[in-house]
Simulated assay, not measured.
Amino acid sequence: MNLQMKWTAACVGLLLALPAAAEVVRKDFSVRSEDGLSIFVRELRDTAAPADRGPMLMVHGGRSGVLASWDVDAPGSSAAEEIAKAGHRVYLMDVRGFGRSAFPREMRDAPEALAGPVAVRSNEAVRDIAAVVDEIRRRHPGEARLAAIGWATGSQWLGHYASLHPEKLSHLVYYNAAYGGPAGGWALQAEFGDPQRPAELDRARHGAYRLATADNLVGRWRSEGVDAAFLARYVQLSMEGDASAGARQPPSFRFPSGPTADTLKLVNGRQLFDASFIRAHVLILRSERDFWSRPVDVATLREHLTSAASVTAVELRGASHYAHLQPGAERARFLAAVLAFTAPRRPSSGAP
């Protein structure tokens, strides 16, 4: 074998010895909810993740769907991608009426039709979550772990689900979400609440669903110098689930009013669920500058979690409601808190 052939063989051998490059694989599928609606799910996995942290379900908030909420892949990586790289098999889902999931009947009428019911209340979201959790568990037979995180109302839905199905989740991250406690102190009360009945949505101004334009989504961020590629991708992912978005001028997408109607109850002395039924490990994660949740929501939830396997409360100092969205210092602290919480737990020294 001549020198050139020896050199070539050595290089090939070295390449074969190197670990495979990490690749985040995305696969989309759908499941059927109990009442027949098609629910969109995206799976993310890293083919070279350094650990196996088990599956994690991620749910959006009350306006944009799950891809805009957790998987904005420009610039750089998304929060969901970083969690997959850490070793979770990530499942992203759209509740009915959001993103790529089917729209319920209440969202097919004109938005100003006020007589009908508000679209997508918490009990309906729980129905969709139940269908997705059952599918995740089917795909991971024998796996005891299943973590879940929602953004704002997404966590409210997951908390409601966990109170009804306490055996299904091992870890719950309750992120920037309302829960209950003394009435008042909600920054959005005047915008959404009925002046005569504070715990009710003002139906004179808000229909079964609402519309959001690009300016509604990112107008403020443009003036703050947020990366233009991120803004464009965020708007695109928010709009794409609504086939009628381009038919309106300016383009806008539909999203249900139910999450806001439910939150008005939570911040005005009414509860949707009792957290004492939850048995998972719970991380209550709140941004210091959040406008959706209140400090009293954290205190009340922590007090009510009497059956939880463990309860941890973390405040992201100086962070906003959007801490997880873009790469940077706020998201780094968000990811550190979540991944520390879902890391494999060592048995206590007193364990047999």
Rank of each mutant, 00 (worst) to 15 (best):
K6D: 11
A10M: 12
C11P: 00
C11Y: 10
A20D: 09
A22V: 01
A22L: 00
V25M: 12
S30E: 14
S30G: 07
R32A: 14
E34N: 12
E34P: 02
G36V: 06
L44R: 13
A48S: 14
A51K: 14
A51S: 12
A51Y: 10
L57M: 01
V66N: 00
S69K: 03
W70V: 01
D71P: 04
S78R: 03
E81P: 05
E82H: 02
E82D: 14
H88D: 09
R89K: 13
V90L: 00
G97D: 09
F98E: 07
S101N: 04
A115H: 12
V118T: 15
R121I: 07
R121V: 10
E124A: 15
V126I: 13
D134L: 11
D134A: 15
I136V: 10
R137G: 03
A144H: 10
I149W: 02
W151A: 09
H165L: 07
H165Y: 15
P166F: 04
Y179M: 04
Y179P: 03
A187Y: 10
Q189H: 10
A190P: 03
G193F: 10
A199F: 12
L201K: 06
G207S: 01
G207P: 02
T213G: 07
D215H: 09
D215A: 12
V218Q: 05
S223G: 14
G225D: 07
A229N: 11
L231G: 06
A232E: 15
V235W: 06
M239Q: 05
A247H: 12
R248N: 08
R254E: 00
K265Q: 15
L266I: 03
Q271R: 14
I278K: 10
V282H: 12
L285T: 06
S287R: 09
E288V: 01
S293N: 14
A299F: 07
S307C: 10
V311F: 08
L316Y: 11
Q326R: 15
G328A: 05
F334P: 00
F341P: 02
P344M: 02
P347G: 09
S349K: 13
